[in-house]
């Protein structure tokens, strides 16, 4: 077991350090029946915003060499519908669920977080274990503070912050001051052709691994709180590599598309061997 939120009164205990990243397991149900998602240390949900988001127009996807570009523009049905559609499923899920909240107007973030934190089992246990706040590429320490206050004012759950790749030091410090752990990182933007159309979006795939490993090294020197590595992890060796170089836990992303069984096997392996 690992504790990701030492200082927090509720804490965030994981059975193993292998989570699924936001965008790669829907709201938990997507892989139901295909793999056992309870094997993972935690599941981060797809983005949840106060109001429904239609997302970007097509094309949203372009394959690259050893990866792909994806831009869905935070498409989601809004917090009310997300809760309605998933509450029953979540109530029986035996794995910590971390709700991914993209940065938004503080008043909207506040309402979204409050709605999510207020859903509980009949016994009164919250169904959401923590939040992951996704920072946009451009923001200030003051923004981070406002977002954190908005989330936490009525929702006593731990908050992880997912940083943009290459975040400046003052932003890293601001995030570290208020989060229980930092998630490194939202992948960089890239563009690639889908037919004759250029798709601009986040880059996923094998190349991320070395970018993130380097980013973890830099951030490790600056701050002292748990770091979660995400980007291009494909093998158990990749996970070990991160865990022995500064990360407390990892999130799997595109591996879920490539080989879901392999992803599940890696989590199972580290449940026993950790």
């Amino acid at each position: 077991m690992i504790e990701l939120a030492h200082q927090h009164k509720i804490g965030l205990m994981l059975a193993n350090p292998v989570m699924i990243a936001a965008g790669f397991a829907g709201y938990g149900k997507a892989y139901h029946g295909l793999i056992n998602i309870e094997t993972f240390g935690a599941i981060v949900t797809n983005p949840i915003t106060l109001r429904p988001e239609r997302g970007t127009t097509q094309p949203r996807l372009a394959e690259t060499s050893a990866g792909f570009i994806l831009n869905t523009g935070q498409q989601n049905p809004g917090v009310k519908k997300v809760i309605k559609q998933n509450q029953n499923f979540w109530a029986h899920l035996k794995v910590p669920l971390i709700a991914h909240l993209p940065a938004d107007e503080p008043s909207d973030l506040h309402r979204t977080a409050r709605a999510l934190a207020s859903i509980t089992t009949p016994q009164g246990h919250p169904l959401i274990a923590a939040f992951e706040l996704g920072l946009p590429p451009e923001c200030t320490p003051r923004d981070v503070k406002a977002w954190l206050e908005a989330i936490q004012s009525d929702a006593p759950l731990p908050v992880l912050i997912k940083l943009p790749l290459g975040a400046p030091l003052h932003l890293i410090e601001a995030a570290a001051a208020s989060a229980v752990a930092l998630v490194i990182s939202t992948p960089p933007l890239g563009s690639a052709l889908n037919g004759s159309e250029l798709v601009i979006g986040h880059l996923y795939g094998a190349a991320l691994h070395s970018l993130i490993l380097q980013e973890i090294q830099l951030i490790r020197q600056q701050v002292d709180l748990p770091l979660v590595a995400v980007g291009g992890i494909h093998t158990l060796a990749d996970v070990q590599n991160f865990l022995s170089h500064g990360a407390t836990a990892v999130q799997l992303d595109s591996l879920l598309f490539i080989d879901p069984q392999q992803a599940e096997m890696m989590a199972a392996e580290l449940t026993n061997g950790f």
């Binding site: 790669f24 997507a30 892989y31 994806l70």
Partner: peptide
């Protein structure tokens, strides 16, 4: 030509229909 996940998680295959997305 491509379906990254096939299970409704990546949202790459969204389609506008009379009944919504």
């Amino acid at each position: 030509p491509l379906h990254p996940c096939g299970v409704g998680s990546c949202l790459a295959c969204s389609l506008e229909t009379a009944a919504g997305l």
